[in-house]
Write a protein that binds this DNA or RNA. Structure first.
Length: 574
RNA sequence: CGGGGUGUAGCGCAGUUGGCAGCGCGCAGCGUUUGGGACGCUGAGGUCGGCGGUUCAAGUCCGCCCACCCCGACCA
């Protein structure tokens, strides 16, 4: 490709809205263009990167035994109503009506469609296991798109679905995918961290995310250096510890003027917050629920949502709490009737807690569970933090931020049961097919690659996903010798199968070098009167400072070698 | 959803008490230049986000709307 003909210009100045490195550089490099919030066009250079990533993913999916297919973006809403996941997605679902007023959705994912498809095409255990995948546009009406390509509303996703006859089969498929995912990130030049993840209200047992660790990441990961425990903070656990309160004592009412918040109450009684019980109120699917946690613990909303099995969760307003007959500042689970009470298991970690009395400015001493009140559910709904103890080995937990570039789930049989995707086993008995699903966001992977691979001059693409391998830079194109030598080199290199971006513009050297750096092409080859004096061209890697002269004779085989070296450096030993 | 902010040329921005629509980059033409974003001259390019209002006069003041960006999704 000739730069003079390339659609998409580089920019010196960064568009105002861009904050993250990948967003800034993609815009400046002329690789993407914003159409609406969370909606982007890919220009030729950006698209080449996306296609490279797709190629690597496709290769690894095929190697793992996946079969590629293509499902539609348009899907009937009824299909989503059958599984109830229209509600789970809620307003994140893009919906529309056709001319006959039939309701359709723009697919946010394809479990429903693929399950129905497999239901139609699989009858026997002999047809299983099965791995089906596609690379295709997904639509999600995110509440807040952000960071350029990091969170967008129309995005490219590789989604693979596994279908097995039993749990062992699912385990096998799952492990295959974990390995394939690791290979993909390695080949894209991205060190990835596999972490335990929340699987959502409708998920199955196991779920893992793959994170690219970077400051600008949206997600927080809690991990243990010692035993390698790592989990998304949404899922992460930590040791809550015991609170020594002695033998249970008789309950006692105490006037606590002016003490409302946990800090004030703890201060009033001169006890640490961990010796109190905190009441928190949420509205879950329209209903007020009463949450009790130890005073030093915060509620993890994702865990709570899972515990409640609800799709919509928000804080209750003060009015809603008061109307339920609860006294703000002294709320108490004791004597509450008609409200669902969910407690964190930390309330059983000690004795003689201080809790509200549900009377203005009054608290209760020596509250003990389950002597004094009963929760409908006692489970882990606590937020874990760095600095706390690892639940596996007791080591100290740390925290980092990351970009989620992949997510895999063991789905189980929820969807196959709902949609009638069954198989007959060897004994003639019918069972629902056991499913897993495995997703990679290509656009986000692309953005994450830039977050990790850039410097003050621009992008530094790993060669496996760079839009071109070589930036051929001709200086003094008005010199016929330069023009001829550069044209010849361009043709020779392309003939060798190398991907060359040929800067044939009549621009000054500075402009060309800066563009080469901004675009992040891994190898720069310069031909100028100066290099021609020595019958040479100059080769410089984007990652290195120094250039070196190489004879023009045989330069294409020299460069072929460099490129294949670079590519093999990223691939996994199979 | 809540909070904050921004909309003026392709991009980055200025525009005072309401009084001719500006600058830099980029773009086009000509000329001089060329190893890390060269220079001169000439030129093109605008529903000032939209609608309504106030006014002799609105980019500027008022109202409504829209779009986009950023922060938060822990208070009993």
């Amino acid at each position: 490709m000739r730069v003079s003909k390339l659609f998409g210009k580089t920019q010196k100045e960064t568009p105002a809205e861009a904050e993250t490195a990948s967003h800034r550089l993609l815009l400046r490099a002329g690789m993407i263009n914003q159409v609406a919030a969370g909606v982007y066009s890919y220009l030729p250079l950006g698209l080449r990167v996306l296609k490279k990533i797709a190629g690597i993913i496709r290769d690894e999916m095929d190697k793992a035994g996946g079969q590629e297919l293509m499902m539609p973006v348009l899907q009937p809403l009824e299909l989503w109503q059958e599984t109830g996941r229209d509600k789970a997605f809620g307003r994140g679902l893009f919906t529309l009506s056709d001319r006959r007023e039939r309701r359709l959705v723009l697919g946010p994912t394809h479990e429903e469609v693929v399950t129905r498809l497999v239901g139609h095409n699989v009858q026997s255990y002999r047809d299983l296991p099965l791995l089906l995948y596609q690379i295709q546009a997904k639509f999600r009406d995110e509440p807040r798109p952000r960071g350029g390509l990091i969170r967008i509303r129309e995005f490219s996703m590789k989604d693979l679905y596994s279908f097995d006859t039993d749990e062992e089969g699912l385990d096998k498929s799952y492990k295959k995918m974990l390995q394939a995912y690791k290979n993909i990130y390695t080949r894209c030049g991205l060190p990835s961290l596999q972490v335990e993840a929340d699987s959502g209200a409708i998920g199955g047992k196991d779920s893992h995310e793959f994170m690219v660790v970077t400051e600008d990441g949206e997600d927080e990961v809690i991990y243990c250096e010692k035993c390698k425990y790592a989990a998304n903070v949404e899922k992460a656990q930590s040791v809550k510890g015991r609170v020594e309160g002695g033998e249970p004592l008789p309950r006692e009412e105490v006037a606590t003027p002016g003490a409302g918040s946990i800090e004030e109450v703890a201060g009033f009684f001169k006890i640490p917050p961990s010796h109190t019980l905190k009441a928190v109120f949420y509205i879950a699917d329209g209903k007020l629920v009463f949450i009790v946690v130890r005073g030093d613990i915060e509620v993890n909303e994702v865990k709570l949502k899972n515990a409640l099995g609800c799709t919509d969760l928000r804080f209750a307003t003060e009015d809603e709490v008061t109307q339920a007959g609860i006294v703000a500042g002294a709320a108490s689970p004791i004597g509450i009737k008609g409200l669902k009470i969910i407690a964190d298991d930390s309330i059983t970690s000690g004795t003689n807690f201080v809790a509200g009395a549900n009377k203005p400015e009054t608290h209760l001493k020596n509250v003990n569970y389950p002597r004094d009140f009963k929760a409908d559910l006692v489970t882990d709904i606590a937020q874990a933090h760095a600095g706390e103890e690892c639940p596996r080995c007791g080591g100290k937990l740390s925290s980092t931020r990351g970009i989620e570039v992949g997510h895999v789930f063991k789905l189980g049989t929820f969807l196959s049961e709902k949609l009638g995707a069954l198989f007959i086993d060897a004994d003639g008995a019918s069972h629902p097919i056991i499913m897993g699903c495995y997703g990679i966001g290509l656009d986000r992977l692309l953005a994450a690659a830039i977050e990790l691979h850039h410097d003050d001059k621009g992008i530094t693409w790993p060669i496996s996903i760079a839009p071109y391998h070589i930036y051929l830079c001709a200086l003094h194109t008005e010199d016929p010798d330069v023009a001829a030598a550069a044209e010849k080199a361009y043709n020779d290199l392309e003939a060798q199968g190398l991907e060359v971006l040929f800067d044939d513009r009549a621009e000054s050297p500075g402009v060309k070098f800066n563009d080469a750096d901004l675009l992040g092409i891994p190898i720069r080859v310069t031909i100028s009167p100066r290099t021609l004096e020595k019958n040479s061209a100059e080769i410089k890697k984007r990652s290195e400072k120094e250039a070196r002269l190489v004879p023009l004779e045989g330069i294409s085989s020299k460069l072929t070698e460099l490129v294949s070296q670079g590519l093999s450096g990223l691939s996994n030993p199979v």
